[in-house]
Nucleic acid binder design. Structure first.
Length: 722
DNA sequence: GCGTATCGCGTTTTT
DNA sequence: CGCGATACGC
């Protein structure tokens, strides 16, 4: 193998450091790269691809799995700069999009249904809702779980690949009385999806895994297709995804995964950062490489973020350093309310723009979508254009879903949900009638014929006939997607104007965008898949390439970086999210703040309102977010508003009154008195160690054989005596 | 019982 | 903005 010189068969590896170079040139066997924020994770992966291709590995044998679509696009774009068109042949994408591809390709030959439509979360909720009412579990029943909780439970049980019953017991013990109803609901939910050829996001992964695990032919076919597998953001994978990686690498173990345990923020979706820990156990002879140099932020920013994450209870010991000079300390601003907070952001943005900063290099980040409403108003008033990420997608708006429902039906006429949607658009047809027709039509072996033969009601016969005519006219085999669009739009236009009469001109812009998007597709199915898996962005002015300021939830900003970052809403009650309980949830919120702050290259502004509007329309005085309040002073500079008399008062971080059942899957509470200094204990993350000190307050110090001294808290360190 | 219009309220995070 | 509740008319 050629290293050292920096040139490997034409790829210049000069600006990788020694650790990265080792990761990149390790051409066989499993590699785990533990890398801090801004340490060049993605770059390392891109170089690895380039290196492999330069060494003669066919690009189509490389599988590159990323977590978000944006990340995979960015990665392939970067690879393109090293490799020209060769990189287009690399198989890359999110777990979900690759699952879709493979299932369509292989599922049929192996006895799984290959004709399916992908449904999003809202549709899943819709089904659950439908079933709830048909099972007689009315909304009136207060003690029965809400729709949202149910959907979370159902998808959560799949995501974590644990039986629903156990999940209810562990997390929703107050629902134990309703276990039978919930289990029957889950069964009905799966039957409904199966009967209508629908797959939710979790099904994609579960079926991919089943394909690999249950059929040797499939495993051979799929695993044999790839010789090298790479996964970015490995800490965001759940158990199913980890299994998929293991099974796909079957026979060669050429896996390189990159991850940072401090950036694990997706546990609500079943992600488990212990996957990183388990990796060396699953793959023998794993090479573990640590990247600790940060190439993104200045030292003052890094000092703050290091300290922030240092307070976390469980993490790999990893202290980032940088060689980037910079004196500017992060700034903290307290506004009287969220209006004043917004005004500060607007004024500062204006100043930065005047100083010549590019708008797309400025980002405002927040915990929840609605935290930015005030700011959006202020920005609009100041005439500043912005791009909002996270929250509602273009294809999630009602009018777009209406339109797409027609196309979905052309691909999968058994899709009862879409039928329902289409019938609801008819005048004089409401939920009850729509559901009845949809059920009849979707159950028929030839749905389109069933539609034509359906006995329409008197009051809606006319409009129903129009719908029938539309479907007999449309022919997905003969007409191109754009042609289909024209015909559907003709039908939908009057419906649309009636349904959304208050604001239809605004919504119409979205519909006009569709043909442009559809023109790029030869087959309707691909268009449908892409709109479910990768919703197109709202075009607006992007076509003109107008650079815009970025407003984003922290989750959607993951993996990105900006010259200037504002993190707003850093107040008690906003950050952490009030529902985050003491324990793992609390720690995840901390990591979330860490992710937000580490997006910044040069300028970091932290802001919060001192006053918040509570649900009961009262103003409540709130303090700084506990994560910042507990930091030692001097890490940031206060640039307070007019009445900056408030001192940073330390806030006790954990609400200690929380019941001790918080620990996941634990049934008895452990007491400090259960442990004595000198006794051996074991921890799922750190391994074995010796208790060295009982700190009090339910904390104790343990010296671990492999990880040194750690302070652990009994309420969520899963500690066992041995 | 069903369909439609209107008002008021609350909003985690996402593939 | 999307929803649930509510009232009204068929």
């Amino acid at each position: 193998m050629e290293t050292g010189s920096g040139m490997a068969a034409g790829v210049n590896l000069d600006h990788l450091n020694a650790a990265q170079l080792e990761a990149v040139t390790t051409t066989t066997g499993p590699v785990l790269v533990i890398a801090g924020a801004g340490s060049g994770k993605t770059r390392t992966l891109v170089y690895r691809v380039a290196h492999l291709i330069a060494e003669g590995v066919p690009p189509e044998k490389i599988l590159l799995l990323t977590f978000t679509r944006k990340a995979s696009q960015e990665m392939l774009w970067r690879a393109g700069r090293l490799l020209d068109e060769t990189c287009n042949r690399v198989v890359g994408g999110t777990f979900h999009s690759v699952a879709n591809l493979l299932l369509r390709r292989y599922a049929a030959t192996l006895g799984y249904p290959s004709s399916f439509t992908i449904i999003d979360r809202a549709d899943a909720e819709g089904i659950v809702n439908l079933l709830k009412s048909s099972l007689g579990l009315g909304k009136k029943e207060k003690r029965f779980p809400s729709r949202r909780v149910l959907v979370n439970m159902i998808s959560g049980s799949v995501n974590r690949s644990i039986p629903l019953v156990d999940l209810v017991e562990a997390q929703y013990s107050h629902l134990l009385d309703h276990l039978d109803e919930i289990c029957s609901l889950e069964r009905h939910y799966h039957e409904f999806k199966f009967d209508h050829g629908l797959m939710d996001y979790d099904d994609l992964l579960v079926n991919w895994k089943r394909l690999l695990a249950e059929s040797e032919d499939a495993r051979r076919a799929i695993a044999g297709r790839f010789s090298h597998i790479m996964v970015d953001e490995y800490q965001d994978t759940n158990l199913i995804q980890a299994e998929i990686v293991r099974l796909t690498a079957f026979g060669h173990d050429n896996v390189m995964v990159v991850g940072d345990d401090s950036q694990s923020i997706y546990s609500f979706r079943g992600a488990d950062f212990y996957n990183i820990m388990r990796f060396p156990k699953i793959f023998a002879d794993t090479r573990v490489i640590k990247l600790e140099e940060n190439y993104r932020s200045t030292q003052p920013i890094l000092t703050l973020t290091n300290e922030l994450i240092d307070k976390a209870e469980e993490k790999y010991t990893k202290t980032l350093f940088t060689r980037i000079a910079g004196e500017l300390r992060p700034m903290l601003f307290a506004g009287r309310d969220d209006r004043e907070e917004a005004a500060f952001v607007v004024a500062t943005v204006k100043r930065l723009l005047a100083e010549g900063q590019e708008p797309q290099e400025i980002a405002v980040l927040f915990r929840s979508g609605f935290h930015s409403y005030k700011l959006e108003l202020e920005l609009a008033a100041a005439g500043l254009v912005y791009e909002k990420r996270g929250g509602l997608k273009l294809t999630e708006s009602a009018h777009m879903k209406d339109m797409i429902a027609f196309f979905r039906l052309l691909c999968n006429p058994f899709d009862g949900l879409s039928w329902n949607r289409v019938f609801l658009q008819l005048e004089k047809v409401g939920p009850a009638t729509a559901q009845k027709i949809a059920a009849t039509v979707a159950a028929h072996p030839e749905p389109i014929r069933a539609l034509a033969e359906y006995p329409a009601g008197k009051s809606w016969r006319e409009s129903f006939a129009g719908l029938v005519r539309l479907f007999t006219d449309l022919d997905p085999e003969q007409q191109r997607p754009v042609e289909l669009y024209a015909r559907v739009r003709d039908y939908y236009q009057p419906v649309f104007e009636r349904l959304y009469h208050d604001d239809y001109p605004k919504r119409e812009k979205d519909l006009d965008q569709l043909p442009g998007i559809m023109a790029g597709y030869r087959h309707l199915q691909e268009f449908i898949d892409d709109t479910s898996l990768d919703p197109p962005e709202e075009a607006g002015d992007t076509a003109a390439g107008l650079a815009r300021l970025v407003l984003s939830t922290i989750h959607s900003a993951k993996g990105l970086e900006f010259e200037t970052v504002f993190v707003i809403g850093l107040a008690e009650g906003r950050f952490p999210h009030p529902a985050a309980e003491f324990g793992p949830g609390w720690e995840e919120e901390r990591r979330l703040l860490y992710v937000a702050a580490t997006r910044a290259r040069k300028n970091l502004y932290l802001t919060y309102p001192r006053q918040l509007l509570t649900p009961d329309r009262q103003f409540r005085w709130v303090g700084l977010s506990p994560y910042l309040a507990e930091l030692r002073p001097g890490l940031f500079v206060r640039v307070d508003g007019p009445d900056g008399e408030e001192q940073i008062r330390p806030v006790r971080p954990p609400p200690l009154a929380v019941p001790p059942t918080a620990g996941p899957g634990r049934h008895q509470r452990q007491e400090l008195s259960d442990f004595v200094v000198g006794s051996r204990v074991s921890h799922p993350f750190f391994g074995n160690g010796v208790v060295t000190k009982l700190v009090g307050g339910r904390s104790l110090d343990v010296h671990f054989d492999r990880h040194g001294l750690r302070t652990l808290h009994l309420d969520y360190a899963r500690l066992a005596r041995i």
